[in-house]
Design a protein around this nucleic acid. Structure first.
Lengths: 190, 190
DNA sequence: TTTGTTTATTAGCCTTTGTTAATATTTTCA
DNA sequence: TGAAAATATTAACAAAGGCTAATAAACAAA
């Protein structure tokens, strides 16, 4: 009965027995139903998340329409911008499927980092990787048309296609459902 | 004769006389001509930059065409992804104008952080802000059409319009020069 | 001031996307 | 199983962008 969080962290840094014990004790797991909201636009994120099971969608609302900006799956951490900045959140986080999620609130996280200082290096490293990845994603988005972006998604994140309805992927790709459907049709007939 | 780097850093953290002295001594200024390349695609970034005067353009080449991804002005730092990752650079950095730039190579930077440990907190903070800003920019880009993006640029970074030729801005906005010109025409007649 | 270079606009034509609405198809669940 | 809800496709038309090429305007340098 390994703790998935400890497995995850151990990919990056080594944990002693004691440290693993500390993490084991600290974490709080919660189950969420499909469509349950973890974080609402305008509210303050008090928690970070680590997805044990399920899938979470980040989106905000523009002109009454939901615009998806990100999808998170098993073994991914979500550290909301609002958690970091202490500003009201720009976006929603909600469950696309039934989820099991480990939650760390600020007090708990802070205590954890105090007890296991090397975690802060991990957080920095993850932040840097996130910057890099965002930059690459952004460049790719800007310099490819919707069809190329869809094909890229097929190649780099095929799991998205299986688990996420196309009408959610459309806004993630910066287009409408209808246009995505046409793109798929075009690709099939070629 | 203040050192602009020290002024810049002092916005975020307080420096003692000694620390300011250390920075003053360490930095190397260099002058670049227009169109001079700071970093080429495929090469390894050995340096970080701080722009004293001038303007630097980040771009890469797709299908033989330059695609601009960023523009940097006075009092901005450039910490190339390649510097961080030790991988060959994905993009070029070159001067849009004649520039004066402070250069810090890795050995010098490392020594600086050792001598002034609180600099590492500053770097982390700047990294976090960069993530946030990139995310917001990306979301905006995805959820607005080219015309809206151009208008947004007018409102949020008017200095770009003054100092950077439109045909460079076009690819930054994810469109062609021709299309940008039409958008400008459309806005004028309305 | 003239010439060449860089930068910006315009036109014509074709492709793609947005929009709205109708219609399939699939999934859910009572 | 059957009805409702959720998801996906298709059609028709207007608006916008890509492409190529021509032209105009601004700037720089001799």
């Amino acid at each position: 009965m390994g703790n998935p969080i400890i497995d995850y962290i151990s990919q990056f840094i080594e944990l002693t027995e004691d440290e693993a014990g500390i993490i084991n004790k600290q974490n709080l797991f919660r189950q969420y139903r499909k469509n349950e909201v973890l974080l609402a636009e305008g509210s303050y994120a008090k928690d970070c998340y680590f997805i044990i099971k399920g899938c979470v969608r980040a989106y905000y609302i523009k002109d009454g329409e939901e615009r998806n900006t990100d999808f998170f799956f098993e073994n991914q951490t979500i550290r909301p911008v609002s958690y970091q900045t202490k500003q009201p959140s720009e976006y929603y986080l909600s469950c696309l499927e039934e989820c099991v999620i480990a939650i760390g609130d600020e007090a708990r996280n802070q205590k954890l980092v105090e007890q296991i200082p090397k975690l802060s290096a991990l957080i920095l490293k993850m932040s840097e990787e996130l910057i890099l990845q965002k930059q690459l994603e952004f460049d790719h988005f800007k310099n490819n048309n919707p069809e190329e972006r869809y094909i890229n998604l097929l190649e780099t994140r095929p799991e998205l296609l299986n688990r996420i309805p196309l009408y959610h992927l459309a806004s993630y790709l910066g287009i409408t459902q209808v246009s995505l459907s046409r793109i798929r049709g075009r690709i099939l007939n070629s």
